[in-house]
Amino acid sequence: MSDYFSNLKRSEQNYLALSCIKGIGIQTLSLIHCADGLDYVHQWDEQAFRQLGISLKRTQLLMDGLRNPFSKTLEQTLDWQQSADNHHIVTPVSEAYPDRLGHIATPPTMLMVKGQLDSLLAAQVAIVGSRHPSFQGRHEAYEFAVGLANSGVVVTSGLARGIDTQAHQGALDADAATIAVLGSGLNHIYPKENAELAEQICQKGALVSEFALHTRPSAGHFPKRNRIVSGLSLGVLVIEAHLMSGSLITARQALEQNREVFAIPGNLSNVQKSGCHYLIRQGATLVESPDQILLDLQGQIRQTQNITLMLANDSHNSKPKVSREIPEGMQPEHYQVYRFLDQGGVGMEQLIQHTGLSVSKLNELLLDMELNMWVTNEQGLFFRQPEYDSL
C-alpha cells in the first residue's frame, strides 16, 4: 500500500478503489456518496447496495472489488502518482476536483493530472476547431489564446493537431497556463508530434485524462474527452469547423452544460467556417476579438477568480472554508437533481434533459430542496445555496 493511499481519508480511499472497478460509473458512485456510504462501504452487505437501487450485477462487482481493492489499475495509478511531484489523482471527493466539472451530466470518476493542479480551478475558456485549419484559422486560434491568456484566463483545449495546437502555443507564448485534456492515457501522448508541447504545458498548466495510464487513443474516446474540455470551461470558442466536425459536438455539449458558445465568422467560400456559421444561426455569440469574450464572461471570470483566491488563502492558512459535502439529510433522489445545479443557474428544461425525470417529479424534488434551503429559485433558474462562508 502506497504512503499516498494510506494518508487519504477513508472516503477517498474507497472512492478511488471503487472508481478503478470496471463497469462502475459515476451514477453508482454518486448513490453511495449521497447515502454517506463512502466511509463505510467496505463494510456493506448486498442488501445495503440493493436498497440504493444498485443492480445485482453492479452490487457483485462492487463487493468483489472491495474484497480485493488493489486492482492492477489502482496499483499502476498509485505508482504513477508517487513517481513525480507533479503527478496528481483527483476524484469528485477531492478538494481539487473542479466544481464546474462536478455538475455536468456524466462527471469523470477520476482524473489523472500531470502539471499544476491549481490550474484546474482557474477561470477557463476552451478553444476548439479543425485539425486541418486554414492559415487564417491558425492565426485566429493563436491570437485569441494570447488575448485570453494575457487577461488571466486559462486556455483549455484537446492537444490535437491544428487549432488545438495553436491555442496551447499561444497561451504558452503569453507565459500563461493552458490545459490539455487527452483522449488517451497520460502515458500515450497523441499526436506524438505534440509530445514536446505536452511537456511545456505541464510547466505552467496541466495535462488531464480520465483514462487509465496506458490507454491508447481511440475514436470513441474523443467525444468523451470533449465533454471535459467544455465542462471545465466557462465558455467554448469555435475557430473553424465543418458541419460534421467534432468541434460541433463540443459546442453541443457546452450548451447542454449551460456554457456559453462563441464562434468566429469567416469567408462564405471557406468550408471550414460552415460550422461556425451554423452555430451562429443557432444562437452562438459572434465574436471578432478576445475582448468580446472577456466582456461576455466577466462576471463568471471574476467569481471564479475570487473563489480560486479564497481556496488558495484557505490552503495557506490551513483553515478550509469551502464545503464540498452533500447537505445533511439529502436523499439520493434529491442528489440526482442537486448535482446538476451550479452557480450559473439551471433551467427546468435542462434539468428534465439531464435527469430524465418527469415534470411533476422534478417539481416535487425542487420544492422539497427549496424548503430545506438547499437550492434557490430565481426567475425560473435553480441555484445551489452559496457554498462559501463569508470571510
Results as ranks from 00 to 15, higher is better:
residue 307 I to N: 09
residue 372 N to G: 07
residue 231 G to Y: 08
residue 44 W to G: 03
residue 166 Q to C: 05
residue 236 V to D: 02
residue 203 Q to E: 13
residue 246 G to V: 04
residue 372 N to F: 05
residue 162 G to M: 06
residue 387 E to S: 09
residue 237 L to N: 03
residue 302 R to F: 13
residue 13 Q to T: 11
residue 99 D to A: 15
residue 95 E to K: 11
residue 54 I to Q: 12
residue 83 S to M: 02
residue 41 V to H: 01
residue 297 L to F: 08
residue 293 I to S: 02
residue 364 E to Q: 15
residue 68 N to A: 12
residue 55 S to T: 15
residue 115 G to L: 03
residue 340 F to H: 11
residue 205 G to D: 00
residue 114 K to F: 04
residue 138 R to S: 15
residue 306 N to V: 10
residue 53 G to W: 07
residue 157 S to W: 11
residue 79 D to Q: 13
residue 97 Y to I: 10
residue 126 A to G: 14
residue 376 T to V: 15
residue 300 Q to I: 05
residue 140 E to R: 00
residue 337 V to D: 00
residue 19 S to P: 00
residue 165 T to D: 06
residue 13 Q to E: 06
residue 382 F to W: 10
residue 176 A to K: 08
residue 161 R to G: 05
residue 344 G to M: 12
residue 58 R to G: 01
residue 215 T to Q: 12
residue 287 V to E: 04
residue 29 L to D: 00
residue 226 N to G: 11
residue 293 I to A: 00
residue 26 I to K: 01
residue 329 G to F: 04
residue 113 V to M: 04
residue 212 A to L: 09
residue 45 D to C: 13
residue 309 L to N: 15
residue 120 L to M: 13
residue 280 I to V: 06
residue 79 D to K: 07
residue 198 A to K: 04
residue 24 I to G: 03
residue 132 H to T: 11
residue 56 L to D: 10
residue 295 L to V: 14
residue 290 P to D: 08
residue 312 A to E: 12
residue 162 G to L: 06
residue 273 K to I: 00
residue 186 L to H: 09
residue 311 L to R: 15
residue 149 A to Y: 02
residue 117 L to E: 02
